[in-house]
């Protein structure tokens, strides 16, 4: 799976705020027009973004292969007809173009997440959203990232324990109930301990914010991101 890789590419050196806005702008632009020329254009654009992050398109395709396989089914499903001629090309092509729009979005999001550590996105969220909501979401993101591996290990342990005691033989409903209850109990115990620890460390609404620096090279990226976001308003 794709995840952050340390590096010094152009994409790595950009401020996460400009990258985030670019990414959202690009996603809006890419899905705006399901036409072939537009698709070619956005794909070319996305490949440039990958180049800026020194990321191979093949690596991205491989990591999203399950998503892509499911998407690739859509044109077939769209083309199937209940009577003769059994398969119609027009709806299949229409669906293929729709699905095709998604590919450049996946490429750009891959470029983002391999060039941006999660803590930078968290810092961007905390700085872009003012006041208490920004603090809750910023610190909250850091905590979820920190706790996800622990909770995942809990859930897997619970599952294995149910298996080990012959849970396979029990009805699905019972297995799922046990799994959900035991996982939830452990999760809530962790929540109790975490809340005491946060309070002991003076968890506050107004902490020193994580450092981020907007650089000159961020402005063009930001401008392109905004231009992309409004591009659907311009008729092609």
């Amino acid at each position: 799976m794709l995840s952050y890789r340390p590096g010094s590419t152009v994409a790595h050196r950009l401020d996460p705020r400009s990258k985030l806005l670019f990414q959202f702008g690009f996603a809006i632009a890419a899905v705006a027009h399901p036409t072939l020329p537009w698709l070619v254009g956005t794909t070319a654009f996305a490949l440039c973004a990958l180049a800026a992050a020194r990321l191979s398109p093949l690596a991205v395709l491989r990591s999203y292969r399950i998503v892509l396989a499911v998407l690739a089914l859509a044109p077939f499903v769209a083309g199937v007809a209940p009577g003769p001629p059994w398969f119609r090309v027009d709806p299949a092509l229409r669906s293929a173009l729709h699905v095709g729009r998604i590919l450049p979005v996946l490429l750009v999001s891959a470029a983002y997440l391999t060039s941006t550590p999660v803590r930078d996105t968290r810092a961007a969220v905390q700085r872009l959203i003012p006041g208490k909501p920004g603090q809750i979401l910023g610190i909250g993101m850091a905590l979820v990232v920190r706790l996800f591996p622990l909770v995942l290990a809990d859930v897997r342990e619970v599952r294995d324990a149910i298996h080990a005691r012959g849970g396979e033989a029990r009805p699905l409903r019972d297995r799922v109930r046990l799994l959900a209850v035991r996982s939830l109990e452990r999760t809530l115990d962790r929540s109790d301990r975490l809340s005491v620890a946060l309070r002991a460390r003076c968890f506050a609404w107004n902490p020193t914010l994580p450092p981020l620096a907007f650089d000159r090279r961020d402005y063009p990226v930001l401008a392109v991101g905004i231009a992309l976001a409004v591009s659907p308003l311009v008729s092609v």
Binding site: M1, L2, S3, Y4, Q23, F24, A27, V31, S63, Y64, I66, V67, V70, L71, I102, V105, L106, L107, V108, S109, A110, Y112, L113, T114, T116, P117, V118, T121, R122, V125, L137, M141, V144, V145, F148
Partner: peptide
């Protein structure tokens, strides 16, 4: 948000805004 930021939290350990839109 953590999925969009790149933590592998969506099904099959995927992440990214692309998945939120297209998965």
């Amino acid at each position: 948000l953590v999925g969009i930021a790149g933590a592998p939290v969506f099904s099959n350990g995927t992440a990214g805004i692309g998945y939120v839109i297209a998965g």
